[in-house]
Every structure is written in structure tokens, then in C-alpha cells.
Amino acid sequence: MIKRVAANGIDIAYDSFGPPSGRPLLLIMGLGAQLIQWDEGLCELLAEQGHHVVRFDNRDVGLSTHFHDHGVPEAGTPAPYTLNDLADDTVALMDVLGWTAAHLVGASMGGMVAQTLAIRHPKRVLTLTSIMSTTGPSVAPPTEAAMAVMAGQLPEDRDTAAEQAVTTWSVIGSPGYELDRDRIRQLAGQAYDRSFDPAGVARQMAAIVASGDRTEALAHVRVPTLVLHGEDDPLIPVVGGQATAAAIPGARLVTYPGMGHDLPRELWPEFVAEITKLTDSIQA
């Protein structure tokens, strides 16, 4: 069941899996992606391994607060907010949940938010897992094909949004695994129904750019860190994961042939095993 709570001056929508007595595990999604992009099946697998799993909508997506008054950011103007604000939103949600600290798992922009949180609020982080992410916007530029599909024309309706999602994931998804077109259409339609706000995605993108490179700051992170990345990711190439692991002392890097910029169902058991190994090593 989706809940909405006040945190850091905004409303944040979230839901959870597993018993509250489990190890606190917070899932942070990427650019323009809603909490539903953390598939319920993956969340349940993590819960089965003793985690209390929470997934949520970042600001400007889904059912959390949208900053409509800021419109679409224009070049040369300050971003309405930065990744610092997204990290602080996440900490405020943890406060509402009663979590003094949590295991963080962030995908893509969510990995950037998790990294930023570990930098800004190190005592609130038990472990850090950064998936298909990077240390800064210029470290791992996308391929031309990925850039083109991400900059495509905005859909005019729900059906068009679903078909464009299939086109997008056929380019940036995992070439080594079969594309589940029906599931992609279903999720895209569900996301459209929950909230369709391209300007919000643009504001998140502005936050990424405005936040710059984290390499120097990540050198001071001392929490146990896992970096997962696809070797065939065209949106954030594997060099982004390599740079993240190199920046954080003691980080463990695991890469997957055939994985692109998504979370293939076939790899869920491996993701869960790696994350559980990390969280098992720390007592909250």
C-alpha cells in the first residue's frame, strides 16, 4: 500500500516489503523513474533475505511532490535543486520511518543520490550499493544511440508512452537478455497513470548537471560499498561503475556481460546475493 508522508518540506510516496524487524534497506530509483521501476518481485526477493525494503518516489516523479512552479530549467539559469536536496529528502524519509541508519541501494541517478547521502550524512549509511551509476555527469557519457532515444519526442497519450518505452529500452536495455515488451508496456502505462511530468524529469536532469563530480568527496566515504554495473550499458557505460569503485576506498566492483541500463530478471538472484552478502556483514 502506498503511503505519503511529509519529509524535508515535501510529500514523499513510498511502500514497503518484509517485516519492520528486518535490516533497513532503502531503494532509490533513477532519472524520471518511479518507485514501480523497482519490480515487486525483486523487492520480495530482497525481503526474503531478511530486509525491510522501502522503495519511494523521488521529488518530481510519481506521487511525491512536483515542483511545477519551476517549469523547465533553462540553460544558464540555476537548477531548482541539486542532488543534495534529493539526498536530504531521503534522510528525512528515514527519519519518518524511524531509521537511524539504513542500507542504501541506488540505481542510475539513484546511485548518485546514494553516493551524495553517504558524503553528506555518513552516519546514516550502513552500506552503499551503487548500480549502473557514476561519479559525475561527464565521467561516462552515453552513446549517440542512447542520447538520441532519450531525447525523443514526448508521447501524446498513454499508448504512445507505452510504445516509446519499448523503443527506449530496446536501445538502452540489456542486449544479452530478452526484452520483456509486455512488462515494459505495462510499467510505462502504470507510470503514465500515476504521473506524467516531463518537466519534472528535466528538473532532475538539471540537478544532476548542477551537482558536478563527486570523485574527490567519495574518497572520504568509509562505508562498505558495492558497485554493480552492466558491461554493455550504453546510457552510463561501465567506466562509470569503474570510476565509482575506484573513488570509494575498499569498494567491490561486480560487472555483468550482456547487462545494459536496466535490471534483467535473470540477474535478480545475483543482485540479491551480492547485496545480502554486503548487508549481512553489518549490524544495524
Rank of each mutant, 00 (worst) to 15 (best):
R4P: 03
A6F: 15
I12K: 01
A13W: 00
Y14C: 03
P19M: 10
S21G: 15
G22L: 12
R23I: 07
P24S: 08
L26P: 01
L27Y: 04
I28C: 07
I28K: 00
G30D: 03
L31S: 08
L31K: 11
G32A: 06
G32V: 00
L35N: 02
L35Q: 05
W38M: 02
D39F: 13
E44G: 09
R55N: 08
D60C: 06
L63A: 11
T65C: 08
H68C: 02
D69T: 14
D69F: 09
H70F: 13
H70C: 04
G71E: 10
P78R: 11
A79Y: 00
L83R: 05
N84I: 09
D89I: 03
A92P: 05
L93Q: 01
D95F: 05
V96G: 02
T100V: 12
A101N: 09
H103W: 05
A107H: 05
M109G: 03
G110Y: 01
V113T: 13
V113E: 00
A114G: 06
L117T: 13
I119N: 04
R120G: 05
H121A: 12
H121G: 08
H121D: 11
P122F: 08
K123T: 12
V125T: 07
L128I: 09
T129M: 07
S130I: 09
S130C: 15
I131L: 12
T134L: 09
G136W: 01
P137A: 11
V139L: 11
A140L: 07
A140E: 08
P141K: 14
L154Y: 04
P155E: 11
P155M: 10
P155L: 10
D157Q: 14
D157G: 15
R158I: 11
R158C: 05
A161V: 10
A161P: 06
Q164Y: 14
A165P: 03
T167Q: 15
S170W: 00
S170D: 08
S174Q: 10
S174H: 07
E178V: 12
D182C: 01
R183F: 10
R183D: 08
R183A: 12
I184V: 15
R185F: 11
G189D: 03
Q190E: 14
S195K: 01
F196N: 10
F196Q: 12
A202K: 03
Q204H: 09
V209F: 10
V209S: 07
S211M: 11
R214V: 03
T215P: 05
A219H: 10
R222Y: 02
P224W: 05
T225R: 02
G230H: 02
D232T: 08
D233W: 02
L235V: 09
P237V: 10
V238C: 15
G241I: 06
Q242F: 07
T244L: 14
A245K: 01
A246R: 06
A246P: 03
A247C: 04
I248F: 01
G250V: 15
A251D: 04
R252A: 07
V254E: 15
T255V: 13
Y256S: 04
P257Y: 11
P257I: 12
L263M: 15
R265E: 13
R265A: 14
E266V: 07
E274I: 14
I275N: 00
K277E: 13
L278W: 01
D280R: 12
S281D: 11
S281P: 07
S281H: 12
S281Q: 09
I282Y: 06
